[in-house]
Design a protein around this nucleic acid. Sequence first.
DNA 1: TATTGTTATACTCTATAACTATA
DNA 2: TATAGTTATAGAGTATAACAATA
Lengths: 162, 162
Amino acid sequence: MSASQAPHDADALDSDGKGAMRMGVLPTLVGRQLRIAYLRTFKDFSMEVEGTSLSPGSFEILELLSCNPGLSHSRLASAIGLEKSSLVPAIVRLEEMALVKRKQSATDKRSNELRITPKGERVLAQLRSYVVQRETEITAGMTRAEVDTLNRLLTRMAGING
Amino acid sequence: MSASQAPHDADALDSDGKGAMRMGVLPTLVGRQLRIAYLRTFKDFSMEVEGTSLSPGSFEILELLSCNPGLSHSRLASAIGLEKSSLVPAIVRLEEMALVKRKQSATDKRSNELRITPKGERVLAQLRSYVVQRETEITAGMTRAEVDTLNRLLTRMAGING
DNA sequence: TATTGTTATACTCTATAACTATA
DNA sequence: TATAGTTATAGAGTATAACAATA
């Protein structure tokens, strides 16, 4: 049984524009469903902390620094999959908020060791609760097995571990 | 069996930065796997046609216009989930490429009827083949049943049909 | 020579607000 | 008053290229 070779949609567009929309092949395309799911899920998902809002990307940075204290700028960038230059604005902002601090490496003076601060850890705990809540929302109506399947297939699709 | 309560990753980060990266809760988060899958899948996916490149969004516009001739600017925008103003640059570009044409509605002079041109249909056919190829790539290693499951869960997650 | 972090710059995508013509 | 399309503008996110300091 295919995802949908037959149209999902019912009626043609009326000339006055009030009919249902024909979607063509679009609903059959996994890539397109992925794109829409991503855009709808992350639209308007900013987490309010300390009077400003932090993005999913900042959450990821804080989580990685919490698990990997002393991580260098370069290694953090490659872990997240960004160019090193693209990470700078986010790091600068987190340092301004006193959630992260930079310290020149003793063994390689070119390199900075990035560490999350105690305040950063407190904020991270709060962000985790937002993230868990969002997880609950976006998987509403799915069984635990379905969530695991979805996670596994997305992981494979992105080649995250391969 | 959970997606991963135990860490996916093996070793701590060495002080010299050569160890494996600890990922914390990140690999367990469906939202995060979705984000990464989307970003990796669509990064560098531009389709070369007529000497320029067209985005997945432009493919979607052409597909919808092919299925719904005479669609208005506003209805197209809401079908795609964008603000009407956000659609303008894409439409202008498609019209410059002679893939789409606009015609003032006879019944409501404020409104434009958008139609794909014969050239647009030819380009659309080419885009479809690119898209199908990309579908094959991103679902490589999945069974047909897995692809269908993934599509169904993504669709439910985005609330696309609900 | 190569690498680390940084800056300058630009591009893509999208949003808000204001405008015009029309309803 | 309200709506359709457009314009101007701005913001987020990311990339490339070039630079200084260091390896």
